[in-house]
Design a protein around this nucleic acid. Sequence first.
DNA 1: ATGAAAGCGCTAACAT
DNA 2: ATGTTAGCGCTTTCAT
Lengths: 364, 364
Amino acid sequence: MHNENVYIFLGFMSTMNRRATIRDVAELAAVSVATVSRVLNGSELVTGITADSVRLAAERLGFRLNSIGRNLRSTKTQTIGVILPTLTHPVFADCLQAIEIKAADSGYGLVIATTSYDPANEERASELLLRNRVDGLILTVANANKSRLLEKLDREAKPYVLVYNQPTGAAKHRASVGVDNRLAAKQVTEHIIANGHRHLCMVSGPFAQSDRARARARGFADALEHANLPATAPLQVDFMRTDIRAQLFEVTSTRPTPTAFFCSSDQLAIRVMHSLRSLGLRIPEDVSVAGFDGITLGDWLTPALTTVVQPTNEIAESAFTLLKSIIDGERYLGSARLHHTLRTGGTVAKPPDHPAQSPKKGTL
Amino acid sequence: MHNENVYIFLGFMSTMNRRATIRDVAELAAVSVATVSRVLNGSELVTGITADSVRLAAERLGFRLNSIGRNLRSTKTQTIGVILPTLTHPVFADCLQAIEIKAADSGYGLVIATTSYDPANEERASELLLRNRVDGLILTVANANKSRLLEKLDREAKPYVLVYNQPTGAAKHRASVGVDNRLAAKQVTEHIIANGHRHLCMVSGPFAQSDRARARARGFADALEHANLPATAPLQVDFMRTDIRAQLFEVTSTRPTPTAFFCSSDQLAIRVMHSLRSLGLRIPEDVSVAGFDGITLGDWLTPALTTVVQPTNEIAESAFTLLKSIIDGERYLGSARLHHTLRTGGTVAKPPDHPAQSPKKGTL
DNA sequence: ATGAAAGCGCTAACAT
DNA sequence: ATGTTAGCGCTTTCAT
C-alpha cells in the first residue's frame, strides 16, 4: 500500500546523516508519535493492525530507540551502576560478570567504574554514575561503616546494595549481600587448627582498604582464642604493590615458626605460596596455606587450594534482585547473609613432626 | 549578599523531592541558564565574578549535572561501550580494568556487556549499547572477518576498535589492536621444539568462538612445518563446559605420545596441567606445557607458566586512544600490532629420555 | 559578556 | 484505540 512512500523514505533516510526518530516512524506509518511509543513499549492498547504497520515502518527506517530521549522524559534509565575496587581480582570480575548476565536478562544496562581500593576514587566514580542518573548502584566500598559515598547515597535516598561489604552497628541499615566473613574465617582457621597446627599466621591485605579483611582477621582471632592459642597480629601486606617475599622470610625465620598461613584472599594465598616455595618450603609438607574466596582457579592448582567458597553467582543475583526491589519502591528490605562453604584442597595438612626447616636465605 | 535567598532556596530544594536543575541554579545566581551552562562547561566567556556566583549557587543547591539532558542535546554521550566474551577470563577482565582507568582519566564513562562467546549475544549486547548512543565501542568478537555486528557498525559508521581480534583479508580495514597471534604462537612452539620435543599437541578452545584460537593454531602449524615435523590437528575442547580429562587421557594414551602441549590460552593451560597431573604426569619432567596470554597469575604458579605475554595495558590504552581519534573524526587510521614477549617459566623443559610413562587409568 | 529561545527524542497526561 | 501537547534538562545559535 505505502510501498512507494516506503522506498522514498528509505532512500531519504539513508541519504540523511541522521537516524530515524520516532517521529519519522509515525509519519511513515501514518499514525501519531504516541502510538509509535505505545507499540515500542508493548502497550496493549494498540490494535494489531496499526501495531504491525508501526513495526514495519520502524524496520524499514532502521529505527533504533534513543534511550537518552526516553530516559530524559521518564527519569528512569534502566541502567545500574557498579563500583568495584578492581577487576584484576577474580572475585570482583566474576561478580561483575554474573551481575551483567542477570541485568541483561532483566533488560538493564550496566555502567561501571573501579576505585583501585581508594576512597577518593569512590567519590569520583559515583559522581560519574550519578550524573548519568543510574537507577541504582551495586558496589563494594573500602569501609561500609564509614563511607562518605554511602552517606551521600543515604542522604539522596539513592537505591544501592553493597556486595561483599558487611556493614555493622549504626550502618546495619545499609542493604548488603555477602557471607559472614568473621564466621567463615573462624571456621577455616578451626579447620587448620584441627589439622594439628599450633602456630598460625594470618596474612592480610591492608585493613584500611577492606572491611572484609578486618572481619576475617577477627574470625581468625576468634578461632585462636577458642582453641586457647595465643593471639597473633596479622601480617598486613600490600601485595598489589610490593614484593611480599621479604616479609614472609622475616616471619618464617622468627620463633615460633608458623606452620600454617591463613590468607585473607585466594589471590593473596597464591602469592604467599609462591613466596614460601621460593624460600624452600613445601606445601603442605612443611607449611600449610588456606585462602578465602573460592575462586575457580584455586581448584586447578596442585595441590588444590583450601579455602572458603563465597557463592559469587548467588551474591550477584541476590544483589541485583534486592536492588531492583529497592528501586521499585520496597523499603526496609533486609540484607542477605549467604551461605559459605569450606573447600578442602590439599594445601592444608598436618604440621611437620619436626619444626619446619629454616628457610634458605637464597637470593634475598 | 544573597544570603537570605540562599537559605530560602536551600530549604526549598531540600524539601522538594527533586534535584536542582540548571534552571534553579540560574535563578539563585540571578543569571540565565545559558550562563550557568557556560560556567559548567568551563567557557572562557564568563566573567570571574559571575562564574563564582554560579558555582556558589550550584554548590548551595547540591546541583549535579544531568548527563541525560546534556547528551540528548549534544548528541554525544562521553560514554564508550565495551563488549567482551566474558570477564571470567583474566585477559578480558584485566583489559576492561585498564580501559576503565584510561577512560575515567579522559572523562569517559563505560557501559559494558558480555557475550559468553555467542554471536547471538553480540547482537543483543550491541543494540543495548547503541540505544544508549555510546560514542564508540571497544570489543572482541568471535570472528572479526565475518561478523554481523561489525557489518552493522561499518554500515552505520559507528566508531569501534577491536581488541585481540585480528581481522584479515577483506576485513583488514577494521581498526584493531592486539598482538600477531600467528607469529607469537609460532614462536612459543619453536621454543618448545628447541627444547627437543618432536611430538607436540595443541589444545585449543573452540575455533568457532575465537579467531585468535584459529590464528594461533596456524602459528603452531607454521612452526611444525618449519621444523619438518608432521602436522597434527589441534585438540578442540570446550573447557568452560566440559571436563577435559577424558580427552587428554585419550591423547596421552595414543602413540606417538605427545611430550608437549601448547594451549591457546593460559586459562586453558592451567586446566590442562591440572588434568595431566591427575593422570599421573609430572610437569615438566614427563610432559611440557605452554600457554598464551601472559596472565599475571601464571607467574605465581610453581613452576611458573611458560607463555606468550600480551601487553594488556598497552592494548587497552592503545585501543582507547585509537577509538578516541576515530570518534574525533580522524579516518583511515591504521590498526596496531603490539609487541608480544615470550615468558619462559618452568613448564617447558626437555622431553623425558624414555617415552612418557603411560598414564594411570586412575578413576577414569 | 550575557540572555532569549529553540529543540534534542521521547513519554505521559489529557483529550477525543 | 488513537491523537495532541507539554516538557524532561540541557546546549547552542542568534541577539544584544
